[in-house]
């Protein structure tokens, strides 16, 4: 049963990953990217890494890809200028791809001959005994707490940077002050005055 699902998920993942960079419409690209994420989730589940699988769904598919989609749908993208840059940027893309592929191959060689000692290898031992949410939590919040905090700080800085870059203070914007609104009562908003006939207020 297992190999069937493995090949199903991998084939769809590879196919949709190729479609991400070949399809003409950028919105379709994002949808294929989402399909790729989805199938990687399936692969994670098959590996028994259920927590990572769900995180991939929640974070990447549920939040990051939605924002991608949001931006790409809103922007009026000029397809021809995108195509024109392709030849120019191709060498860079190929270089990055080659480096990533090389890293993957090296790590596989390392795993096969036991050359590289993967930090956190003890996780694999624990996985058979306890559920992997617990195992991950035990490692992340004890041994790697400083690295984890560092990652959090980097994300925070990135977030602040993005807000600072895009935020602009506009003049003459009417804002609702909910506290002020709810604290208002009859005494400071209504005045009863007796108006004499023919005189006005």
């Amino acid at each position: 049963m297992l190999p069937v699902f493995f090949y199903l998920f991998s084939i769809i993942a590879i196919f949709s990953a190729i479609m991400v960079i070949t399809t003409k419409n950028p919105v379709h690209s994002v949808f294929f990217l989402i399909l790729t994420f989805f199938n990687s989730t399936g692969l994670f589940v098959l590996m028994g890494a259920e927590f990572l699988a769900m995180l991939l769904l929640v974070v990447y598919v549920g939040a990051v890809a939605v924002l991608f989609l949001f931006v790409i749908m809103m922007l009026n993208i000029d397809f021809s200028s995108l195509r024109a840059g392709m030849i120019k940027n191709a060498p860079l893309g190929l270089l990055i791809g080659a480096v990533l592929l090389g890293e993957i191959i090296f790590s596989f060689i390392g795993m096969k001959y036991g050359i590289s000692e993967i930090p956190g290898n003890e996780l694999f031992v624990k996985l058979s005994e306890i559920e992997n949410t617990r195992a991950l939590g035990n490692v992340i919040y004890t041994d790697y707490i400083y690295l984890f905090q560092c990652a959090g700080l980097i994300l925070l800085v990135a977030m602040i940077g993005a807000i600072v870059l895009t935020h602009r203070r506009r003049e003459n914007v009417k804002k609702q002050d909910a506290v002020k609104q709810t604290l208002r009562d009859k005494s400071d908003s209504i005045e009863v005055s007796k108006v004499e006939i023919g005189k006005g207020v």
């Binding site: 259920e50 927590f51 699988a53 769900m54 769904l57 929640v58 598919v61 992997n132 949410t133």
Partner: peptide, 10 residues
């Protein structure tokens, strides 16, 4: 499954 809540959330 062990991650039921996360699945629902996802």
């Amino acid at each position: 499954i062990n991650v039921g809540v996360l699945y629902l959330f996802a």
